[in-house]
Simulated assay, not measured.
Amino acid sequence: MRALAEFIMRGRMQATLVVAGCAALPLLYWLGAAAVSLVLLRRGLKDALGVLALGLLPALLWWLYSADPRALMVLLGSSALALVLRASESWNRVLLVSIAMGVVFSVVLGVAFAPQIEMLSQALIKILPEALGDLYQQMSVEEQARFASLIAPVLTGLIAALLQIVSVLSLIIGRYWQALLYNPGGFGREFRAIRFPLGLAMLLLAGMLLGPNFGPQMAMLTPLCSVPLVFAALALIHGLVAQKRLARFWLVGLYVTLLLFMQLIYPLLVVLAIVDSLIDFRGRMAPKDADNANGEG
């Protein structure tokens, strides 16, 4: 990873080669987004604009000829988040802005993948009586119709939330590279300090629970508002492992469990982040003089 980061920072041509090459490959666009984030964080928009523009060309071709906007969305999304992080030095702000970015993603996906999402939602609606059993039969006709109307927006929100997560992860990789080259250890301290104040955590929880009450299309807020809380919970766990000097095995176990039991662990992480906003598990144990990972100057 360090060798790749050094290659990217060697010059504009090298950075453009990595970004454009990764964007041209369907499964590596996230790596190109991380490379753009690194250049943006270190050198700013002026120097990164040319790299980003050339990197967007293959992503745009994917959208035009394959009807797949994911690479373009992640490149633009991670770049926007990198600008926010560079300007604010606040991961809380980055994660909150990612919700607005996710809403934009949802709108784009609703246009680009409307037939596929509608087909999948209709298939899910057909199996609802069998999946919910007696609970579905106890619903009134109006409740069944309202429940069915939420399927497509939630599916759109889930796909948008996945791209939102990929965009944030690309930024995390770019920030990690920046700290690796210019401020070793800085990113770890920065990431482990992420924690939402109680007010913001409650707002995110309200967005998750109350969003569907403002109309079917607002159901997309449920998955989108959960993403910042999940990252805050992961930061908490990383922080506790570092403070207690536990083996990295615990973190490996966490991510393996998260991948295998996503439906169970994901909501638990959301709850953990909300509880941490109340209790502050790290509390005064967190280092107060932690350096940021900007690596400039």
Rank of each mutant, 00 (worst) to 15 (best):
P153N: 13
I172A: 07
A206S: 03
A123G: 02
G188T: 10
V107T: 06
P212D: 04
S79N: 10
P216S: 14
T156L: 06
Q164F: 01
V168E: 02
A114N: 15
E118D: 13
I165V: 13
G110E: 12
V108A: 04
Q217R: 12
S79F: 06
Q178R: 01
I127G: 13
V111D: 04
S170M: 00
S170V: 03
F214P: 07
D134M: 11
S149D: 09
I127S: 15
A193S: 14
T156A: 04
V166N: 03
F196A: 00
I125E: 05
L96K: 04
S140I: 10
G77E: 00
F214D: 07
G174I: 01
F196K: 04
S88T: 15
V168K: 02
M101A: 09
Q144R: 13
Q122L: 05
G188D: 13
G215N: 12
L85V: 06
G185H: 14
L204R: 05
A179R: 00
A148Q: 07
Q116P: 05
S167H: 06
L120Y: 09
R146Q: 15
M101V: 05
L76H: 01
L150N: 05
Q217A: 14
L81H: 12
S121C: 09
L128D: 03
L203C: 01
E89S: 15
G110M: 11
M119I: 07
R189W: 12
V104Q: 05
V97P: 02
I165M: 14
A100L: 11
S79Y: 09
E190P: 00
F105L: 12
G157Q: 02
N92W: 04
E142Q: 13
G207S: 15
M208H: 06
A179E: 06
L83N: 14
P216M: 14
A80G: 13
S140H: 14
R195W: 00
A123K: 07
Q178P: 03
Y176S: 07
L95V: 10
L158S: 13
T156R: 09
Q137R: 12
L135P: 00
W177P: 02
P212S: 11
T156F: 05
E142H: 11
L204H: 00
L135C: 01
A131D: 07
V111I: 08
A87M: 09
F113S: 01
V108G: 03
G188W: 08
A206L: 11
Q164I: 06
E118L: 12
I151V: 15
L81C: 15
G211E: 10
G174K: 04
L81T: 10
V154M: 08
L169P: 01
